[in-house]
Simulated scan of single mutants.
Amino acid sequence: MTERKLIANVTLSIDGFSAGPGGDMGWLVEHSVHDQMTTYFAGVWSGADTVLLGRSNYEGFFGFWPSVAADPNGSGRSHDMALWLDQVEKVVFSTTLTEAAWQNARIAKQDLESEVRELKAAAGRDIIVLSSASVIRALLKADLVDELRVHLAPEILGEGLRFFDEGVPASSWKLDGANTMATGSVSLTYRRERGVTS
């Protein structure tokens, strides 16, 4: 049986931050809600049936997406994504949460590496990490990411949460696609080249 593909999806500023000071995400709203980006991203999440989230993203998503899914007048890509997020399996990695109230969500039973290796070996479609920086960094350190999707926004933040740190080991990736959006952001898809280091 072929191992499931693990996709890490993250939006970064030009200077490499995934969040601004105090966790501010306002700088990426214009880029993430644009029709062109939501259409592009639908092609990414629609192929996945498991989502990995850290505590902060789980709480943020849970506080927003269920109400979008429940809106009887909802339509469009955002509503489609909300419905998908409601139904998809969600695995939350947290040392402080004891339960996950969102339907089809659960707290990981094992450490991240063991849990993800088990998920990748199980039957299913793609596994995707949605912007949870700490989870993506840990998976990069364990060399468990097969595809890295970086959405580079034309913003310089100057400070905030820097995505890459010195703990991420060297690795080689092959560019597998590039899309320029109307807002000026660029979506880059990289595929891991196993057995090759930079």
Results as ranks from 00 to 15, higher is better:
residue 94 S to G: 11
residue 121 A to W: 04
residue 114 S to L: 06
residue 114 S to Q: 15
residue 117 R to N: 06
residue 93 F to Y: 03
residue 130 L to T: 06
residue 107 I to P: 01
residue 131 S to Y: 06
residue 117 R to M: 04
residue 114 S to W: 03
residue 117 R to I: 01
residue 105 A to T: 13
residue 119 L to V: 02
residue 139 L to S: 06
residue 151 H to C: 13
residue 84 W to T: 13
residue 92 V to Q: 02
residue 100 A to G: 11
residue 106 R to W: 00
residue 87 Q to T: 13
residue 89 E to T: 08
residue 127 I to C: 12
residue 85 L to T: 11
residue 124 G to S: 04
residue 115 E to P: 00
residue 117 R to F: 00
residue 146 D to M: 03
residue 122 A to E: 03
residue 108 A to W: 12
residue 121 A to L: 07
residue 98 T to A: 09
residue 101 A to F: 13
residue 142 A to Y: 09
residue 137 R to W: 01
residue 128 I to Y: 00
residue 132 S to T: 06
residue 102 W to M: 08
residue 86 D to K: 15
residue 96 T to I: 11
residue 97 L to C: 13
residue 142 A to G: 05
residue 138 A to L: 05
residue 94 S to T: 06
residue 130 L to P: 02
residue 129 V to T: 05
residue 133 A to G: 07
residue 88 V to P: 02
residue 103 Q to G: 12
residue 81 M to F: 14
residue 141 K to V: 15
residue 117 R to Q: 08
residue 139 L to D: 09
residue 88 V to G: 08
residue 131 S to K: 04
residue 118 E to S: 15
residue 146 D to V: 11
residue 114 S to G: 09
residue 82 A to Y: 02
residue 107 I to G: 04
residue 111 D to R: 07
residue 134 S to I: 05
residue 114 S to D: 15
residue 93 F to W: 04
residue 149 R to I: 15
residue 103 Q to T: 13
residue 112 L to I: 10
residue 119 L to R: 05
residue 126 D to Q: 13
residue 118 E to H: 14
residue 111 D to E: 12
residue 136 I to V: 14
residue 133 A to D: 11
residue 132 S to Q: 07
residue 83 L to C: 12
residue 132 S to A: 07
residue 83 L to A: 11
residue 139 L to V: 09
residue 90 K to Y: 10
residue 124 G to A: 03
residue 105 A to S: 15
residue 119 L to E: 03
residue 115 E to D: 02
residue 130 L to I: 14
residue 92 V to T: 03
residue 90 K to F: 10
residue 146 D to K: 05
residue 133 A to C: 07
residue 117 R to Y: 04
residue 92 V to L: 05
residue 128 I to M: 15
residue 145 V to Q: 02
residue 118 E to R: 15
residue 134 S to D: 14
residue 123 A to N: 10
residue 91 V to E: 04
